[in-house]
Amino acid sequence: MNQDPLPKPLPYHLMEQMRRAIIAGRLPAGVPLREQALQIEYGCSRAPIREALRLLERRGLVTHEPRHGFRVREASATEIQQIYQVRALLEKQVVLGLLGRVTQNLIAELRAANATVKTHRAAGDVERYIEANTAFHAVLRSHAPNEPLGRALDVVYEMAEPMRQALLRRSLPTSPAAEQHDDIIRLLEADRVVEAAEAMDRHVFTGMPVALRGIALARGANDRRDSAD
């Protein structure tokens, strides 16, 4: 007999609601997260709100300072560089894990996943594009299982998600990711795994200059708004 899934505990439900708001930009980087205001918005007591904020802090989406409370993480240029450096290192290691494991099934799955990336890019659907892009990288991980590596990548993806959403809302039509995926697939099909790993490293770093320009523009806009207040 089919049963409806059990509802999530309230702190996890609240965490998901706030996570979506952060990723979509409804709660922008740097904005304070006042517990009293969140209580009113979500119609619940302070305890589950505080636990939800702690969960978001562990995911790297919010920060906390004693006596100042929680706020949406505002990444510095240095932190953005660090995120890209760590992700490039991890993604390269995923591909190196495919040494001796490249199969026709892997190539077929990668091509199908990348076709979906291209479809959503053409449609201008940022959310589905990111899901498809993540699915492409997940195919690589599934053919070279490495749980510690996968867990580390999950954390990096989560920290970068609001930034990716904001950048792609401006630059999705010109994203070169799908074509770079094609290059990686061709190298893997030729069993040139080490070269594919180097291509993956370059692929990840492609986005860093765009991210750094984006944060500079956002800070300039914030400075102009503050000076006008």
Rank of each mutant, 00 (worst) to 15 (best):
D125E: 07
D201N: 12
E79G: 02
R87K: 10
L56R: 05
F70G: 01
R19H: 12
E74D: 15
T103M: 10
R71Q: 13
M1A: 14
S76C: 13
R151M: 13
R121G: 02
S175M: 04
I40L: 15
A216V: 06
L96V: 08
T78E: 12
L110S: 00
H120I: 03
R19I: 03
V139K: 04
L187M: 09
T206F: 15
T63G: 02
A122Y: 00
S227R: 13
M1D: 10
G69L: 06
R46T: 15
P32G: 14
L61P: 04
M1F: 11
G97W: 06
Q81H: 08
R46W: 14
E195A: 12
N146G: 05
L110V: 01
Q36P: 03
E41V: 05
L212G: 09
V72Y: 08
P176I: 07
N2L: 10
Q3P: 02
L168G: 05
L98E: 03
I185N: 02
A177G: 01
D191A: 00
Q85N: 15
E74L: 14
L99P: 02
R26H: 08
D226Y: 11
M208S: 09
E35A: 14
I130E: 13
I49P: 00
V204H: 10
R202V: 00
P176F: 05
D182P: 04
L53Q: 10
P148L: 11
